[in-house]
Design a protein around this nucleic acid. Structure first.
Length: 887
RNA sequence: GGUCGUAUAGCUCAGUGGGAGAGCACUUCGUUGACAUCGAAGGGGUCGCAAGUUCAAUCCUUGCUACGACCACCA
């Protein structure tokens, strides 16, 4: 047989782009109606400023595996790609560029000009990440590509906003919010990250008016005292009861405030006495509301102190703290300073300390929506995989707080609320379209609210607007009714609240239907030590580099086999290398069968003419098809990949191919075509099974395996379990065969017989069927264990002397000694074997001797244990005998 | 402080109420016509600790310890 003309090693570099282009050209990513219903999934839209990282690679690999799997199963499969405008990140990027290149700020340009610049930037660089994404092999329908600021998403945002505004769920209010002084914008609670900071407790004396008494107050932020509106104590605190209602004097600014009682104050904490700053503290804001206190704002937009804090005006909060402490010291009002570790909120984007501040912002009341979104998960309309993540979701959704929607940015969806300029009218209204005039007074003098919406507001409507909602024409074109609700959302746990929860609430609110059947939460990719990958740590593994080095299939397999219900993936490039080797193994397995394919026909094979080994491999193939399908259905990519790996590597390559070598090369075999057809059948099934995970190499191989009338592998059907390919007896026998071959190899190895050297073997077994089978298989023992001659006898026969032996539960294997071996070493080995088996035997015997065991355990278990005990006993006997004979 | 999670081979992690698994790493041997990105064989684990349930616990329950994530809290 001639050798395959294929290269000895698989080279992915040439074929990846080739196949991706071919798939696109043939429109293979488009949904095709079938009789199994639809499968829809949404790509979490990468940020327009983004660069492809391992998290994307993982997220996209999983989705592509699912999508290719479902497509092959015959579902009308749609994967919608998109891109997010990423308000803050993008605006910041363009601002930086503008300043660096032209020395201008956005204010120098003005809003319209600046937005033009952002669009220019978007058009120039926005495709960057999309092109990177394509390198992963994503089989998404690019005709559905949606940018979150496209026309339809803009319509969806405006419609949703206006509807909820008119319903009274979206409202404007003066409320304490998180103010990011770098962005100079409000941010939502979710965008605040708490970090532990080493600070101090400053103990300050507040004098009590018309009294000699002083109140000792502990605070971590002395600079906020300029905004104090009260001093509060617990109503039950005896120490201060007599002071309630009196006035306290704020140091430095010498302002008088009332001493009030409020239940929020904890008598145990600090001095039990609290300064109340409703304008700059979340709890104090609540106290202020309860006690009708004045809100004093002491901060400018940029985080510096304003005129209300005269003594420190113009300073940053940090500087103000320093100076305030110095002033207090001067006035001898600073009692002590204790170091104190505490959690301080930082802006997710800016990483600066967030200042609580009262300002007028737009809010969305999510109470009712959150309730419905909880119910949807509780009654399994939407299922989380792994289920445990429901808890995280509930934690957020069961305690809904008003969502601060407005951002003081320019890049984003501008809030569709309009203010009439006419003084006599001053109408405020929301409108889905840009109005011509005020609907109340018809004046054409009005202005739009300058703020934009939180980026997550538009992301929250993503399942709808990617499918055309609310534009009827677009909905029809994109098949909204068919594809919504979607099937599976695949994302990371870090955005369960940011994104998943918001989509659940908003989409249900808009349509009355939950957006997802399943939500699969995958792991976070970390470095080998479990640390988060970050530029500053220098531990980033670049997916594109890995693809370059090992091929996309290898990277995808690595990520998929690492994904199940786990939370972390500690990625090691060595692992990718390992699976590159596996991909290469598949390639070489194909190289082996390739020459034989010329004997194959289109006729398939006759089941009743199958060889024992063929029955075995078909049976094993059957099993792996079953388990892989089940694993994919449960998002157990780790199980699915391991099952395929094991089948291909161990069963198919190590045993089946090795066993086939003899048969296939025999010239006289009248069943050449049949053999070739079985081989071809198996490999076709293997490429199908592997295709979702390793699409490139399988598509490449498919070209050699497909019949003339067949199209690309991506469009082929998924393998199915076939009862007629299930052969239990052959599986049983093969397992015996493999066990004995391994044992013979073990024996050879233990006495250093060279691999090439042929040995004589004697097998002793009392199982007649087994003995017959071994006899029939003698040729294969010869092939795989280099046995030149063998005899099979029953156990009553006399054992040979000058042999090494190994016992299984059913068969003893004896191999005559050639030349000299170290008898003592060999005896030691037998002893080790003996001890092992004895231990097992003891365990089982102990169990059997327990009368309660026989009483309570199911009969099958008892029988099983008995059988085991007998097996172990036989092994012990034969090893002991062997030891005796050596003595 | 609250919630959730994790503890299994040197490393990364599967797993099951009834004889402990995989990949990688390690040791020994091997240039066998698919593959040295390979092959064969092997060593290595009181399944975190303690108690309970059970005929039987690595698996179920409780407690403890360690680690991690998230949430809350700037007195």
């Amino acid at each position: 047989m001639q050798e395959s003309e294929l290269a000895k090693q698989f080279d992915p570099s040439g074929i990846e782009d080739k196949w991706y282009e071919k798939w696109m050209e043939d429109k293979c990513f488009k949904p095709v109606p079938g009789n199994k219903g639809t499968f829809t999934t949404l790509m979490p839209p990468p940020n327009v400023t983004g660069k492809l990282h391992m998290g994307h690679a993982l997220n996209h690999t999983i989705q592509d595996v699912l999508v290719r799997f479902k497509r092959m199963q015959g579902y009308e499969t749609l994967w919608v790609p998109g891109q997010d405008h990423a308000g803050i990140a993008t605006q910041a990027k363009v601002e930086q560029k503008l300043y660096k290149e032209e020395g201008l700020t956005k204010h120098d340009l003005g809003r319209d000009k600046f937005l033009e610049k952002v669009w220019e930037w978007k058009n120039e660089y926005g495709d960057h990440i999309i092109n990177q994404v394509k390198k992963l092999g994503d089989s998404c329908d690019w005709d559905y590509f949606t940018f979150t600021m496209d026309e339809v998403p803009s319509q969806s945002v405006r419609k949703f906003f206006v509807d909820l505004y008119n319903e009274g769920l979206i409202y404007q209010a003066d409320y304490i919010i998180n103010w990011d002084p770098v962005l100079q914008s409000a941010i939502s609670d979710a965008e605040v990250e708490h970090k532990e900071v080493q600070g101090n407790f400053y103990h300050i004396h507040y004098k009590v008016k018309d009294s000699n008494e002083v109140l000792e107050i502990a605070t971590t932020r002395p600079e906020t005292l300029y905004g104090d509106s009260a001093v509060a104590v617990n109503p039950n605190d005896d120490r201060y009861e007599h002071l309630i209602g009196k006035k306290a004097i704020i140091p430095i600014c010498e302002r008088e405030v009332t001493i009030i009682a409020d239940k929020h104050v904890d008598m145990e904490t600090g001095t039990g006495c609290l300064k109340v700053t409703p304008g700059h503290d979340f709890n104090d804001f609540e106290i202020g509301k309860r006690n009708d206190l004045e809100i004093i704002s002491i901060l400018n937009d940029d985080g510096t102190m304003n005129a209300k804090a005269k003594a420190v005006e113009g300073l940053t909060t940090k500087e103000a703290r320093k100076k305030t402490v110095a002033l207090l010291k001067e006035q001898e009002l600073l009692i002590k300073v204790e170091p104190h570790k505490h959690q301080v909120g930082h802006g997710q984007r800016s990483d600066e300390v967030v200042e609580p501040r009262v300002s007028k912002q737009w809010f969305l009341n999510t109470e009712e929506m959150a309730k419905r979104s909880v119910a949807a998960v509780e009654n399994d309309e939407t299922k989380f995989y792994p289920k445990g993540w429901e808890n995280t979701y509930f934690a957020y959704q069961k305690n809904p707080r008003p969502w601060c929607l407005s951002r003081q940015l320019w890049w984003g969806h501008q809030i569709p609320v309009y203010y009439c300029n006419s003084e006599s009218c001053s109408n405020v209204w929301a409108s889905e379209t840009t109005p011509e005039n005020c609907p109340k007074c018809s004046s054409n003098e009005f202005k739009q609210d300058p703020d934009v919406l939180d980026t997550w507001f538009s992301s929250g409507l993503y399942p709808l607007n990617t499918l055309g909602w609310p534009n009827e024409e677009a909905m029809k074109e994109k098949g909204f009714d068919k594809f919504y609700p979607t099937s599976t959302l695949t994302t990371g746990f870090d955005i369960i609240f940011f994104w998943v929860a918001r989509m659940m609430m908003m989409c249900d609110k808009a349509t009355g239907k939950n957006p997802f059947q399943d939500v699969y939460i995958h792991a976070i990719v970390r470095d080998i030590d479990g640390k988060k990958m970050s530029k500053s740590l220098g531990n980033v593994i670049d997916p594109l580099e890995m693809i370059d080095q090992y091929g996309c299939d290898a990277l995808r397999f690595t990520l998929a086999v690492s994904s199940g219900y786990n939370r972390n993936i500690n990625l090691d490039p060595q692992k990718i290398e390992g699976y590159r080797n596996f991909v290469n193994k598949v390639w070489n397995a194909f190289r082996f069968i390739h020459p034989y394919l010329e004997n194959a026909s289109d006729q398939g094979f006759q089941v009743d003419e199958l060889h024992h080994h063929e029955k075995w491999i078909l049976s094993e193939l059957n099993d792996v098809i079953k388990s892989v399908t089940a694993s994919f259905d449960e998002y157990r990519f780790d199980e699915a990949c391991s099952a395929i790996y094991q089948f291909v590597y161990d069963k198919f390559c190590s045993w089946f191919i090795e066993l086939s070598k003899g048969i296939l090369n025999s010239q006289n075999d009248g069943l050449k075509t049949q053999r070739a057809n079985v081989l071809k059948y198996c490999f076709r099934e293997i490429t199908r099974l592997l295709h979702p995970v390793t699409p490139f190499i399988t598509e490449e191989l498919w070209q050699h395996l497909k019949n003339e009338d067949e199209s690309l592998l991506i469009l082929q059907t998924w393998p199915e379990y076939k009862t007629e390919h299930s052969f239990d007896k052959d599986v049983h026998d093969m397992n015996l065969f493999m066990e004995i071959v391994s044992s013979i190899r073990n024996l050879r190895n233990s006495v250093n017989v060279k691999p090439k050297e042929e040995v004589e073997i004697r097998l002793f077994t009392d199982e007649v069927e087994t003995a017959k089978y071994f006899y029939k298989s003698r040729g294969y023992f010869k092939e795989l264990a280099r046995v030149k001659a063998g005899r099979i006898k029953d156990k009553s026969a006399e054992r040979p002397t000058r042999c090494v032996m190994k016992a299984t539960t059913h068969t003893e294997i004896f191999m005559p000694l050639e030349g000299v071996i170290d008898i003592e070493e060999y005896k030691a080995k037998l002893h080790r074997d003996l001890v092992k088996v004895q231990k097992e035997h003891e365990k089982v015997e102990k169990k059997l001797n327990n009368p309660k065991f026989a009483e309570n355990a199911p009969d099958e278990v008892v029988a099983e244990v008995k059988e085991k005990a007998a097996g172990f006993k036989e092994q012990i006997n034969s090893i002991e005998e062997s030891l005796k004979s050596l003595d």
